[in-house]
């Protein structure tokens, strides 16, 4: 039984994929392009791949080039996340998602975060402003 939540569009597009959640901020520079595995030591997702997944995370960190360049390298190996769901968007992260054409949304209710588990199938439709847990 699927459940739909409304959200706010940041970067256009839609995608459906498995969810992966983290409480830690992400710098895409620290993700290995060849397989999408998080390399940052002490990161909650260290050793796990974010490639082709719907990534739920608080927001970005790092200097003003790290997100778009990191995503660009992931894209060369087709390992970018399928979609991004964030809580605290910053301009560096947002511009990176828009330029690399990854759907990105925010303003999901806490209820959504409580409901989603790693591995759940999620549909992100940024254009129509909703996220569905399938």
């Amino acid at each position: 039984m699927s459940k739909r939540y409304s959200c706010h569009k940041i970067s256009e597009g839609k995608a459906q994929a498995e969810a992966i959640k983290t409480h830690d901020r992400i710098m895409f520079y620290q993700v290995r392009p060849e397989d999408g595995v998080m390399e940052e030591k002490d990161h909650e997702l260290v050793g796990r791949s974010i490639a082709q997944k719907v990534l739920l995370f608080p927001g970005g960190k790092g200097s003003s080039v790290v997100q778009q360049d990191g995503l660009y390298h992931l894209d060369r190996f087709h390992n970018m996340p399928a979609a991004l769901i964030v809580q605290d968007p910053d301009p560096v992260l947002v511009a990176g998602a828009i330029i690399m054409e990854i759907p990105m949304v925010d303003r999901l209710p806490q209820e959504f975060y409580d409901a989603v588990k790693d591995g759940d199938q999620i549909l992100v439709n940024a254009d129509e402003g909703y996220v569905e847990v399938l």
Binding site: H8, K9, I10, S11, V65, Q68, D69, P89, V94, I99
Partner: peptide, 30 residues
């Protein structure tokens, strides 16, 4: 790109700038 950025942050309008600084990185994505 800037329009999408403005929409993402609920900007009401765009305003002119006098200066800019680009963090050129000389990396592939840049």
């Amino acid at each position: 790109i800037q329009f999408a950025l403005g929409e993402a942050f609920d900007a009401q309008r765009m305003v002119p700038i006098k200066r800019a600084h680009v963090a050129l990185s000389n990396q592939d994505g840049d």
